[in-house]
Computed example of a mutant assay.
Amino acid sequence: MADQPARNFVSYELQGEIAHIGLNRPEKRNAISDSFVEMIADAVARAESEAKAAVLYGHGDHFCAGLDLAEHVKKTPIEGIRGSRRWHAVFGTIEHGTIPWISALHGAVVGGGLELAASTHIRVTERSAFFALPEGQRGIFVGGGGSVRVARLAGAARMTDMMLTGRVATADEAERWNLVQYVVDTGEARRKAHELALAAAGNATISNYAVINALPRIQDMAKEDGLFVESFIASFTATSPEAEERLRAFLDKRAARVKAPGTAGGG
Score class of each variant (00 low, 15 high):
T170N: 10
A132R: 04
V150Y: 06
R167S: 14
V142G: 13
L164V: 11
L133I: 11
M162F: 03
A151C: 15
E175C: 13
R176H: 12
G139V: 01
A151L: 02
F141T: 09
Q137N: 01
A151Q: 09
R149F: 08
M163G: 02
I140C: 05
V148P: 00
R167T: 15
G143E: 08
F131H: 08
R149W: 09
R158Q: 14
E135A: 06
S147M: 15
A174D: 03
L153R: 15
R167N: 08
R138L: 13
E173F: 04
F131R: 07
L133N: 01
Q137C: 00
F131A: 06
V148F: 02
T165C: 01
G143D: 06
R176V: 14
D161N: 11
T160C: 02
P134L: 00
E135F: 09
A154R: 05
L133S: 09
I140S: 08
T165A: 01
R176Y: 12
V150N: 08
T165W: 05
E175Y: 13
R176I: 09
R152Q: 15
D161W: 03
R152Y: 08
T160A: 11
E173I: 10
R127Q: 14
V168Q: 11
F131G: 08
G145Q: 11
V142T: 12
V150S: 04
D172S: 15
A171W: 03
V168R: 12
Q137R: 05
G144Q: 02
R158V: 15
R127C: 02
R176N: 14
R167M: 10
R149H: 09
A171F: 08
A169W: 15
A132E: 12
G136Y: 00
V148I: 14
T165I: 03
L133A: 07
G136Q: 02
R158G: 10
A132Y: 02
G146D: 07
G146N: 09
G155E: 10
M162L: 14
L153Y: 07
A174Y: 05
E175S: 13
A174K: 10
A157Q: 10
V142Y: 05
T160E: 09
A171V: 13
G144E: 04
L133T: 03
E173C: 09
A156C: 02
A151V: 07
Q137E: 04
M163W: 00
L153S: 14
T160L: 06
A171S: 15
G155A: 08
R167C: 02
G144V: 06
E135K: 00
R138T: 01
P134K: 01
A151H: 04
R167L: 13
A157M: 05
D172V: 15
S147Y: 11
Q137D: 01
P134Y: 06
G143F: 00
A154L: 11
A157N: 11
F130N: 12
F130L: 09
R138W: 13
I140L: 06
P134S: 02
V168C: 07
M159A: 07
T165L: 02
M162D: 04
F141A: 12
